[in-house]
Amino acid sequence: MTHDPAAAARQEAPQQTFGTANIAPLERPSATTRFFMGIVAAAERLNLRCSKVGNPPVYDNATFPWAAEIEREWPLIRRELEQVLLRQSELPSFHDISTDVQTISKDSAWKTFFLAGYGLSSQENIRRCPETWRIVQKIPGLKTAMFSIFEPGKHLPPHRGPYNGVLRLHLGLIVPEQSDRLAIRVDKQVCHWHEGHALIFDDAYEHEAWNHTDKTRVVLFVDFVKPLRFPARLANWLLLNMAVFTPFIREGLDNHKAWEKKFYAEAEALRNRKD
């Protein structure tokens, strides 16, 4: 029997399922969007072959030396978060900003406080969290930064992220307990958040998350560019910079602007009444 190195390499290549069973994607009638998603699928296969950091579902934090710097400054982020949570009930549900999230979440128990994403940013929110914004600038290839707020009882069903050219960081900020009632599963690995500690994973693997406690869990939610070799690095750069022109991002920006206008107008009205 002859040994075929190419066949062996194919068998050992990392596998990611491009889609999630039982989760129907939102229909997008735009021909431009369908064309763009076809390019994304090809780029994902290239990214798997050209990763500089391998393709595990969950990473060892030592792979990214800057993660320790982020962890050291977590109390400053926590302090700004606490001010944000004074108006927790008024924060937007994730699906109200990103309508595509409706495939996995339609209730009000997953809230967000958005700082930046894919070249767009919320200057009002950044002004209220200057230390958080300064700290996340230490992350090479930063694409998205926000607070992700899981209220009691929230459970996100199994799903996968839209694109494997980025990796995700969760920095634990408020973690009410350490138990299987509060966890995230990435592929076959169940992980637990810890306050002040980073969890770095590839959200292109199927994952689900839950908070079955009676208290709120909050993490700093960051997406950053996956380190890749050429030519995947170039293709990834092009795709991530084109993303801002897609309906997925443009709709989210418009939705966030509408929420932001109302949120800060109400804050100003309250200040004026106090004066």
Rank of each mutant, 00 (worst) to 15 (best):
P29C: 12
P29M: 11
T33W: 14
T33S: 13
R34D: 11
F36A: 13
M37F: 11
G38S: 15
I39S: 08
I39N: 08
A41T: 13
A43N: 12
A43Q: 11
E44F: 02
L46R: 01
N47W: 01
N47E: 09
L48S: 11
L48E: 06
S51P: 01
K52R: 07
K52M: 00
G54P: 02
P56L: 01
P56V: 01
P57I: 00
P57Q: 04
V58C: 05
Y59E: 02
D60H: 01
N61I: 10
A62G: 06
T63P: 05
P65Q: 14
P65F: 06
A67W: 04
A67R: 05
A67S: 09
A67I: 12
A68L: 08
E69K: 15
E69P: 08
E71S: 05
R72F: 03
E73C: 10
W74A: 13
L76W: 12
L76R: 15
R78D: 06
R79Q: 15
R79K: 14
L81K: 07
E82L: 14
Q83A: 08
V84P: 03
L85Q: 06
L85I: 05
R87Q: 11
S89F: 04
S89P: 07
E90G: 05
E90I: 03
L91S: 13
L91C: 13
P92Q: 02
F94E: 11
